[in-house]
């Protein structure tokens, strides 16, 4: 590459316009280079562009289109239904119940997971012998699949052979129908989910904590600030970008939970744990009402977009950026 070339590129990279006195020869060369860059850029991007186009953008748009039709058993559109599927969705008790259950589920899961993971991260941030072992143990749930976690918790919740009821029995508490009582089932699914998310949340919070400057704590303890005040007035505010990131991930994850419900409760009892993705799965692949289910996926999509936007605007004001 010639020196002139480099200079031209520098000029472009700083956003300055091309010199007006550029010679036709040089302009031709520049045009050719721009074309070459465009082609090779697209070549490097082509694999991901193809995958995104076929398996993300096309289905997202097609789902929107399908939501305006009644569909046959193979999921192909038959009769134009207008807003029929949306009206049916929004007026159905099942969907409303599913939405309420999903929101209550997120309300139970997200703050609890973050609080427990924050405690774990504070503990694991100490410099003690053998800390590597504890960090690994706290991160472990990260590796466990929804299916495996749910099978283990199903046994823990088992009415007669589960350890939870056996433990309560010691104190004379009568057995609880952890996954069969409509008032308790959602709590049980939440407990399972909180445990599943602990590893990820812990690892991200600990990483954030380790990047905080230590000088602030030193001067705070010289000023006589106790550990609780240091946590509340230094750690949490400085960690807020990370807490914010984790909360978004957890909320969106809650709206997409599926595996643990499929194994623990199949949406029951009486629809108490019929979270939104499970409802969509049932309608699309069990009842084979693809048009109706597509309308619900569009609603789910809008909820996720609005949630991210609201959370972003609301969260950003409270977030401390370094």
């Amino acid at each position: 590459m010639t020196a002139v070339d480099t200079k031209a590129r520098r000029a472009r990279s700083t956003g300055r316009a091309q010199p007006p006195h550029e010679s036709p020869e040089r302009r031709r060369l520049r045009r050719r280079r721009e074309w070459r860059n465009l082609l090779s850029g697209l070549a490097y991007l082509s694999p991901v562009l193809v995958i995104f186009a076929v398996f993300l953008f096309y289905p997202a748009i097609k789902a929107g289109w399908l939501s305006f039709f009644n569909t046959n058993v193979r999921g192909l559109p038959t009769v134009f239904a207008g807003l029929g599927n949306y009206i049916a969705t929004l007026t159905s008790d099942g969907f409303r119940q599913s939405l309420v259950a999903t929101v209550s589920f997120a309300v139970m899961v997200v703050p609890t997971t973050m609080a427990i993971a924050l405690c774990l991260a504070v503990l694991a941030n100490e410099k003690l012998r053998g800390m590597a072992f504890f960090r690994t143990v706290y991160a472990l749930p990260l590796a466990i699949s929804a299916a495996a976690a749910a099978v283990v918790w199903r046994l823990i919740f088992h009415p007669s052979q589960g350890i939870l009821n056996a433990f309560l029995g010691i104190f004379g508490i009568s057995p609880v129908g952890w996954v069969t009582d409509p008032n308790v089932a959602l709590i049980s699914v939440s407990l399972t989910t909180i445990w599943m998310h602990l590893g990820f949340t812990f690892i991200v919070l600990l990483g954030g904590m380790q990047s905080l400057p230590t000088e602030l704590y030193e001067s705070a303890s010289l000023d006589g600030a106790g550990r609780w005040r240091q946590l509340r007035n230094i750690t949490v505010p400085l960690l807020s970008p990370v807490l914010f990131f984790v909360s978004i991930v957890l909320v969106i994850d809650s709206f997409q939970s599926f595996g643990q419900i499929d194994i623990l409760t199949q949406g029951g009892p009486a629809g108490a744990t019929n979270l939104i993705v499970y409802e969509i799965y049932q309608n699309a692949f069990v009842h084979r009402q693809v048009g109706y289910a597509s309308a619900q996926t569009v609603i789910l999509f809008l909820i996720v977009v609005v949630l991210s936007a609201v959370q972003f605007r609301f969260g950003e004001r409270k977030v401390h950026y370094q």
């Binding site: 398996f55 289905p59 709206f255 996926t297 789910l300 999509f301 996720v304």
Partner: peptide, 23 residues
């Protein structure tokens, strides 16, 4: 293109499964 790429983070995977299954 980078903006388009980042916008895919907003599309929940579950919203695409019905059509992806058909594909």
């Amino acid at each position: 293109l980078f903006g388009v790429m980042l916008s895919t983070l907003m599309i929940p995977w579950e919203a695409t499964i019905i059509v992806n299954f058909q594909t």
